[in-house]
């Protein structure tokens, strides 16, 4: 708990993404396109967490994200929380939410799907349940969290 406070308070302005599933930190970095971020980005994985056992955390200085961007995180880490920091203070704390439709982020796992053979933006309907399942709008096959690859 002390550790978490330290990480959060160390940020003057920016976003903290907390309670990321530990293995998914790198995919979350990718989903938010943070490989190309010019600001300071801190990340931690395998941190101790009361809620998850182990968790990951990412903090990005001087950046705020649109809900559509943040909700992509729910595809791999539905328990993640997002904290906005302004002037060392927490101004907003939200949970990520699974979108009902996912366009152009995820690849269809079906190798014979037309989207893997022509330049077509992928499009999935999100089927909610215990496990995140994406139903391809085109081939109607399911892509699950375990076989999810990003475009």
């Amino acid at each position: 708990m002390v550790k978490k406070e330290l990480i959060v308070s160390a940020l003057e302005n920016g976003t903290v993404i907390d309670h990321i599933a530990s293995k998914e930190v790198f995919r979350v970095l990718h989903l938010l396109n943070l490989e190309k971020c010019e600001e300071t980005v801190y990340m931690g994985s395998n941190l101790e967490s009361q809620k998850l056992g182990r968790k990951g955390i990412i903090k990005v200085a001087n950046r705020y994200f649109a809900p559509e961007e943040l909700n992509k995180i729910a595809l791999v880490s539905p328990n993640a929380t997002v904290i906005e920091i302004r002037n060392f203070e927490v101004v907003k704390k939200t949970k990520v939410e699974l979108p009902s439709q996912v366009k152009g982020i995820v690849k269809c796992m079906n190798p014979n799907c037309i989207t893997n053979h022509e330049t077509i933006e992928t499009n999935f309907n999100v089927v909610s349940g215990d496990e995140v399942k994406l139903k391809c709008h085109f081939c109607e096959k399911f892509t699950t969290k375990d076989n999810m690859e990003f475009c």
Partner: peptide, 10 residues
């Protein structure tokens, strides 16, 4: 008729 799944929807 097309050998790829999803081709007709597209």
């Amino acid at each position: 008729r097309h050998p790829r799944e999803g081709s007709a929807r597209y």
